[in-house]
C-alpha cells in the first residue's frame, strides 16, 4: 500500500507533570513526571506502536494527544496545527478528528444507554446527522462495519460479551470518521482468541479506509509487532527507541529494549532453557524523582559515568532507526 508521507501527528518534546499537592492551600510539593520530553511523528495511514511497562507514561501520552490532559509543555501538531494549548471551545472542532479506544470494555460503555445511542452519540455531539433517519442509517452502518448485527442496537451493554463490547467501542470511535485513533491497550482485557479478532478488525478498518492512522498503546510486544508499522519503546516518561518492528525485534539497540525483548518467553522449552535473559537490576525509579541524565543509568548494564549527566536525545543511527543512548554507535 502506497502511503503519502503526509504527517498526521507530530509530537514535539511533550511534557506532562502532575503536581502533588499537600495541605489546605494545595501547595505543590513535587511533580510526577509522567511524560518527560516525548517526540514522535505519525504519518497518514501509519500505525505507531507505543510499548513500555506499566507506569512509563504510555497512557498519559495518549490522553495528552486527545487533550484529556493539558500538557505542561511541548507541542502537539495535528495536521500541522498546534493543539497542545488550544482552549476547549476552539478544541471542540478538532475533536471529531481523533478518537480513543479504551482498555476496559466494561467501564467504557455507559450502562444505561442503549448500544445504538452509545455508538451514535459522537454524531449528535458534532451535529453530523441531518435527520433521525440519517442517524439511524449511520449507526446501522457503523454496527455493520465492526461486525455487529444492527438489530442489537436497542440492547444494553451488559447484554454483550467483552469482545462485542470492544467492537461497540470501536464503532463509537469510528462514528465521526476520525483520521487518528488512539488505542489504549484495546485488547489487554480480552481473551486471546478475541484479541486476534479485534486486532484483525482494526487492521481491516485501516485497510478499508483512506488514511486512518493508529497510535497503538500496549504492553503486549507480540501484538505490537504484528500490528505496527513502527514501534516506539518508552521508559520512565521518555522514548528510548523508535524503529520498524522488524528491526526492533531482530536488532534492538537500546539496552532497555534488549532487556524488554528478552522478557518475552519463547514457546520452546529447549530454547527457553538455554536462552540468556537480560535481567535489569533494581526497580523502576519513581517518576517523582527520576535519575539525572539518562533515566536508565541506575539499572543499565553498559552505563558509563557520562550517562549520569547527559540526557540522551533520539538520534537516527541509520534507516530511520532512532535510539536515545550515548553508548550506541
Amino acid at each position: 500500500m502506497s502511503m503519502p508521507d503526509e504527517l498526521i501527528l507530530e509530537v514535539k518534546d511533550l511534557k506532562m507533570y502532575f503536581p502533588i499537592t499537600r495541605g489546605l492551600l494545595k501547595k505543590k510539593v513535587a511533580y510526577v513526571k509522567a511524560v518527560d520530553g516525548v517526540t514522535f511523528k505519525i504519518k497518514r495511514g501509519e500505525t505507531l506502536g507505543l510499548v513500555g511497562e506499566s507506569g512509563c507514561g504510555k497512557t498519559t501520552v495518549g490522553r495528552c494527544i486527545v487533550r484529556l490532559y493539558k500538557p505542561t509543555s511541548g507541542q502537539i501538531l495535528f495536521n500541522g496545527k498546534d493543539i497542545s494549548s488550544l482552549p476547549e471551545n476552539k478544541m471542540r472542532s478538532y475533536r471529531k478528528n481523533f478518537a480513543l479506544i479504551f482498555q476496559d470494555p466494561y467501564s467504557s460503555l455507559d450502562p444505561r444507554q442503549s448500544a445504538g445511542n452509545i455508538v451514535g452519540e459522537p454524531l449528535k455531539i458534532h451535529n453530523l446527522v441531518k435527520s433521525k433517519k440519517d442517524y439511524q442509517e449511520r449507526v446501522e452502518k457503523l454496527f455493520q462495519s465492526v461486525g455487529l448485527d444492527p438489530s442489537l442496537m436497542s440492547r444494553y451493554p451488559h447484554e454483550f460479551s467483552g469482545g462485542q463490547r470492544q467492537r461497540m467501542g470501536i464503532a463509537r470511535a469510528l462514528s465521526c470518521e476520525p483520521s487518528l485513533i488512539i488505542c489504549d491497550e484495546p485488547v489487554s482485557a480480552l481473551d486471546v482468541s478475541i484479541q486476534a479478532q479485534i486486532i484483525n478488525l482494526l487492521q481491516d478498518l485501516k485497510e478499508g479506509s483512506l488514511g486512518l492512522s493508529y497510535l497503538f498503546i500496549s504492553h503486549d510486544l507480540s501484538v505490537v509487532k504484528h500490528f505496527s508499522d513502527r514501534v516506539a519503546v518508552m521508559y520512565l516518561g521518555r522514548i528510548v527507541e523508535i524503529t520498524t518492528p522488524k528491526k526492533l525485534y531482530n536488532n534492538p539497540l537500546h539496552p532497555y529494549t534488549k532487556a524488554l525483548l528478552s522478557a518475552i518467553p519463547v514457546p520452546d522449552p529447549d530454547i527457553e532453557e538455554t536462552r540468556k535473559r537480560i535481567i535489569m537490576k533494581g526497580d523502576v525509579p519513581s517518576p517523582v524523582n527520576p535519575p539525572s541524565g539518562c533515566a536508565l543509568h541506575t539499572r543499565c548494564p553498559i552505563a558509563i559515568p557520562e550517562c549520569k549527566e547527559l540526557v540522551p536525545l533520539l538520534r537516527d543511527v541509520g534507516g530511520g532507526h532512532e535510539v536515545a543512548c550515548i553508548r550506541v554507535k
Binding site: L68, R95, A99, L100, F102, S108, E121, P122, I125, C176
Partner: peptide
C-alpha cells in the same frame, strides 16, 4: 472517573 465519561470528554461533549 468512568471511561465512558472520558470518552464523552474526548468527543467534545458539553
Amino acid at each position: 472517573e468512568n471511561d465512558y465519561i472520558l470518552v464523552l470528554q474526548t468527543a467534545g461533549a458539553s
